[in-house]
Write a protein that binds this DNA or RNA. Sequence first.
DNA 1: CGCCAGGACGCCC
DNA 2: GGGCGTCATGGC
Length: 249
Amino acid sequence: MREFEVHGTDIYVCCKGFDLELTLDCGQSFRRIVNAEQKADGVVILHDITEEEFLSKWDDYFDFKLDYEAVKAEFEADPTMKKAIDFCGGIHILKQDPWEALISFIISQNNNIPRIKLIIERLITHFSRFPTAEDLLTDISFARLGFREKYLKSAAENILSGRVNLEEIDKMTITNSRQALMKISGVGPKVAECTLLYGFHRLEAFPRDVWINRALDEFYPNGFPYIDSKYAGIAQQYLFHYIRNIKNA
DNA sequence: CGCCAGGACGCCC
DNA sequence: GGGCGTCATGGC
């Protein structure tokens, strides 16, 4: 749980263990939408916002109200998770816009993070905003999406027709929400899971990408002990960042 | 030249 | 149900 103070147009937030840069650049988000800086351990300044904006938006975006120290304590009984948490336990799971998470993770498939960021940057530069469904139905060949272009158009069509309704998905059981998202061509189990975790903040969602599968094969040949935790997605994020970065260290 | 990147699809058996 | 080639693009 966080505490905060208002200083003019800035908000000072103190949230034990939180690491801003790690959270923003650990592969869950592909663009920076906040003007903020880390001042000390767990202390962050959010610039140019009001208290109302903090409480209605950024407090949820950064998931400041969940007690991550308690969540981590649950996972630390496992030696590999202990190492991962020591390495990157400052990560919070961002609560991003569901539409943006959906589109971003469709782009992410069989792609690398720098190029995902580049493609999203091209789209935003062209449309002067994160692309809407209508935007995506125009000529977007400039973005050089490759085979993913048709998948973005499928997403846009399904949203505009109402066949896929993000507001309804938000209220569904996770099993039904997975099924609903996968009605979009180009959305399989992994993209659906990422959309649920990072867009709908379903912290029990557990995306399995190539890195997580490597980590599971290497460290958990008999199964991941926290796969059914209500916070499995948080454990997944620690493991993901750990396995990706420890190898080249 | 090859292999890989926060996968999904279509086709095969 | 599982296995495998293919799909654009770009970095190394």
